[in-house]
Design a protein around this nucleic acid. Structure first.
Lengths: 154, 154
DNA sequence: GGATATTCAGACAGGATTGTTTTATATTGT
DNA sequence: ACAATATAAAACAATCCTGTCTGAATATCC
């Protein structure tokens, strides 16, 4: 597993929000139902994303969470730096604390180019691109129960 | 963190074993001291690697762990399939249980080529290559305390 | 056979991540 | 002002990963 569950929920939630009309706040409850994830846990994650200034939060009636202006341009990297921590990009495969070009683990020079591919992907992929992909209907954001909920609701 | 600590210890230990003469068993105690990792925990990991038939174990005096014959050809992938579990290669970035070319998450087609790079690296990298790299002295297998141990011993 | 050294196996403990519950606080509508 | 609704925050619980400890089994040496 390359991402923590927290990160997976964060990315899923933000993509979902990017597919919704940006004028009105989205309810944590609704996001959780759509994704099929525990609502209180998701709330905590959304709060930390708000603290990291990726989105706004509004309390009270008609409250909810909103992507900040230009939120469509948020990249996966920005999200993961918040949810996985700032050391996310500097990982050594063997877990060495100090592993750089100067003092390297035996895997270092094999790993670096692959890691670059990953980082490029994360920096190049914006919520906008992912939201558009979802809106075509060809891609799924969560496992089945989300659609099931839609059918019950309709 | 892309690998669990268990996997990191397993890979480190196997590389170290590959640098040692293959005739005599290596003691868990010695490996742990070299790598600077908790010996009882490492023992459990080595035992599971023995069950997964990557190495032999011998009890009693002059016992220890040995790479199985041809152990130099063991790949990182073989190790990680044991320590991370068989689903290791099928991971979806968003954590969907079902994410394939047919039913894909919006990241799927961006992630697949990067994942292939990772898998290629893991399947191409053998203990032999890594052990040789370590033997040149240019690469470190663990954080500093290993060398310290050598100095005390000498 | 007895002493010693080592892995084996399983129970146990700590900490981090994941998930739940509860209470407080802010906002809106009546 | 009050009720309803929503996030905020913090305490709590469960689970998994990491790490420890102990007793047993096994092999070697004397």
């Amino acid at each position: 597993m390359i991402l923590s569950r927290t990160s997976q929920y964060a990315v899923q939630a933000l993509i979902y929000m990017a597919t919704q009309p940006s004028a009105t706040p989205v309810l944590n409850k609704d996001i959780a139902a759509q994704l099929g994830v525990p609502a209180p846990y998701l709330a905590k994650i959304l709060q930390s994303l708000a603290k990291g200034s990726l989105l706004f939060s509004f309390r009270g009636r008609l409250g909810g969470f909103c992507l900040r202006e230009g939120g469509n341009k948020i990249t996966l990297m920005q999200i993961l730096l918040l949810t996985e921590g700032p050391a996310f990009t500097q990982s050594c495969l063997l877990g060495l604390k100090k592993c750089s070009d100067e003092t390297a683990c035996p895997l270092h020079f094999r790993w670096v180019p692959v890691k670059k591919k990953i980082i490029d992907l994360l920096q190049d992929t914006t919520l906008e691109k992912l939201a558009k992909a979802v809106e075509t209907g060809k891609y799924r954001l969560a496992d089945v129960p989300g659609q099931l909920f839609d059918q019950i609701k309709a």
